[in-house]
Amino acid sequence: MPITTTIKDRIAEIVFDVPPVNAFDSTTWNSIPAMVTEAGRNPEVNVVLIRAAETARGFCGGVDIKEMQAHPERITVLNRGNYLTFKAVRDCEVPVVVAVHKFVIGGGIGICGASDTIFAAEDAYFSLPEVDRGAMGGASHLSRMLPLHKVRAAFFTGGNIPAAEMHRLGAVEKVVPREALVEEARAFCTVIASKSRKALVIAKEALNGLEPRDVDHGYRFEQGFTLEMYMHEDSQKARDAFVETGKAATF
């Protein structure tokens, strides 16, 4: 399976391995919420670790732009899969740790932003190229990690934020060499796994409730603009350019 779940020592690992770049189609996005929810509900699990396969080119390339180019009518299905995935991560009964390497793009930002703690390899970078892809979305979850003006600069330019900068701004817990990423993330999860599951479940609910705004509502609000953008001719032009050249369209 391209996405697998294994459980060992009270740690559930959900591993992405969808070649070539872990860019998920609408069906895949809609399959992830149940995996996260089931892992969190398992009484033998105290923490969930989400990562890409060590052989994967990067953590997550977001959505499958080729599917959206060929089937624009699936945008609402994709939107729902994204929303439910991020909500499942944030609502997971136990803490969710994410370990990322290389690219964290689009939906990868949503997974990280909905999680509780992020570990990053030194080669990792975070990006929301939505403006260049004829879409919207992701700022609600990036806002859970970064200050307002940094979020806007990243969103308007579609630029990359290196792991070191994410760490400096407090979004990433630790930056480690690529070859040590899984080991370091598992070691952190082992500390969490040693705690009382009941205490972790209560703590997660309390911490979510303390947040000053509802990130899920914010993302749903954003998705209304996503649909509006997809209906504009510039959106199709942007997707065509990316699929054909791998670059942003010129307007």
Rank of each mutant, 00 (worst) to 15 (best):
I3M: 13
D9F: 06
I11R: 05
V15H: 07
V18L: 11
V18T: 14
P19K: 07
T27R: 13
T27W: 12
W29M: 06
I32N: 01
A34H: 10
M35P: 04
M35W: 08
E38Y: 02
E44D: 15
E44S: 14
E44M: 12
I50P: 07
E54G: 06
A56C: 12
D64R: 03
I65K: 02
Q69D: 12
H71L: 13
E73F: 05
R74K: 15
F86G: 02
A88I: 04
V89R: 00
D91N: 11
D91Y: 05
C92P: 00
V94M: 14
V98Y: 08
V98M: 11
A99C: 03
H101V: 09
H101T: 13
K102R: 15
I105C: 14
G108Q: 09
G113A: 01
S115A: 15
F119N: 06
F119T: 10
A121W: 00
A124S: 05
S127I: 06
D132T: 09
D132V: 02
R133I: 01
G134D: 00
S143M: 05
V151S: 00
R152C: 08
A153K: 13
T157Y: 07
G159A: 14
G159F: 07
I161V: 05
P162R: 11
A163T: 10
E165M: 13
G170N: 00
V172I: 05
K174F: 07
V176Y: 03
R178I: 14
L181Y: 01
V182S: 08
V182F: 12
E183L: 13
E184R: 08
E184H: 09
A187Y: 08
C189G: 09
C189W: 00
A193T: 02
K195D: 09
V201D: 08
I202D: 15
I202H: 13
A203V: 12
E205F: 05
G209V: 12
G209C: 08
P212K: 10
R213Q: 10
V215K: 08
V215S: 13
G218C: 11
G218H: 11
R220H: 08
E222A: 03
E228W: 13
H232M: 10
D234T: 11
K237L: 04
E244W: 07
T245E: 01
T245R: 09
G246C: 04
K247G: 03
